[in-house]
């Protein structure tokens, strides 16, 4: 189980990287390598060129600018998970990251790598979708920003060109004290989710939900926003009956089945996971609201 032959390039600046990307065919970018290296070892992929971006400066780092959290694409998942700013301002990111693989894979794995791999059962794309994140992309002679909804094109297909590279993710922050929950059902701790769900929510002083975002992962070709469920819950108190009504959004999901779960079963699990997620997020919003007052 050894990787096939490839040419190895190791750019030492973003400009050099962009030039390499522009000048190579059938190249793969090696970020944290926690998916790509396994796929190489299994000979599922045969790139002619491997461009290792681990030594490109400026691609890693976490900062908050105004109300946005900016995470460099090469920031290791475990760095994000343990970062005090992230835990304080976007606790759902840390909560979800704890469920990503294992500490050894999070030490190497990067946020940009996970987003570009775009496994529908992975946690980070779902989190990015939930936050309406924006993806910063660079290429030779240019930069652009893509809303996550446009970045997620199809099954394991990100909306970037072969000559482009993701350099950062920008996550609009929710107000302090927002409710959140990321929950998933896996066979074992750290496995890809059979179904996962995330929710961000804020309530006004009366306890009425004034803003809510819902996303589910693991069930379809791509992570999905639960727009209908968001509409059902907005402006309500988020009581159990309304939560149940919101779950009917799962009935309409186009669910993929595989060896670890048929489509019907996954749909059912999604419902169960989403129920727990919504209840926890809403209850946390209320608790944290109480705490702030």
């Amino acid at each position: 189980m050894k990787p096939p032959p490839f040419e190895y390039l190791r750019p030492e600046s973003l400009d050099e990287l962009c030039v390499m990307l522009a000048g190579t065919e059938n190249a793969k970018i090696l970020a944290g390598g926690q998916s790509l290296m396994a796929m190489l070892n299994l000979r599922y992929v045969f790139p002619d060129v491997l461009i290792d971006i681990n030594r490109v400066p400026g691609l890693a780092g976490i900062e908050i600018k105004r109300d946005r959290l900016r995470i460099g694409a090469m920031t290791r998942q475990r760095k994000i998970e343990l970062d005090p700013l992230v835990n304080e301002r976007a606790p759902i990111v840390a909560e979800a990251l704890h469920l990503v693989g294992h500490r050894q894979t999070r030490n190497r794995g990067t946020i940009g790598g996970s987003l570009c791999h775009l496994d529908p059962a992975a946690e980070l794309p779902t989190i990015a979708l939930l936050h309406d994140a924006e993806i910063e992309i660079a290429k030779e002679g240019g930069r652009r920003t893509l809303p996550i909804a446009d970045f997620i094109v199809d099954y394991m297909t990100p909306g970037i060109e072969p000559n482009e590279v993701v350099v950062a993710v920008e996550i609009p922050l929710w107000q302090d004290g927002h409710g959140y929950c990321f929950h998933e059902f896996t066979r074992r701790h750290g496995d890809f989710a059979v179904a996962s769900a995330g929710c961000l929510v804020t309530c006004d002083a009366s306890g009425t939900i004034d803003k809510i975002a819902i996303a589910v992962g693991g069930v379809s070709t791509v992570p999905l926003r639960g727009v209908e469920a968001e509409e059902v819950l907005s402006g309500t108190s988020g009581d159990d009956a309304t939560v149940e009504a919101a779950l009917s959004f799962c009935d309409g999901l186009d669910v993929l089945g595989d060896f670890h779960g048929s489509a019907d079963y996954r749909k059912h699990v999604a419902r169960s996971v989403l129920r727990k997620t919504l209840k926890t997020a809403i209850s946390r919003a209320r608790d944290r609201l109480g705490g702030l007052n």
């Binding site: 090696l30 926690q34 396994a38 070892n41 475990r78 050894q104 190497r108």
Partner: peptide
């Protein structure tokens, strides 16, 4: 396993644990 699941190849690289089957020697 050589596909990053079993953890037998775990080592410390610059102080943090990593699967050495999922890294290239050149890295």
């Amino acid at each position: 396993c050589e596909h990053g699941v079993c953890g037998a190849c775990t080592i410390l690289v610059d102080g943090v644990s990593a699967r050495s089957c999922l890294m290239l020697a050149v890295q």
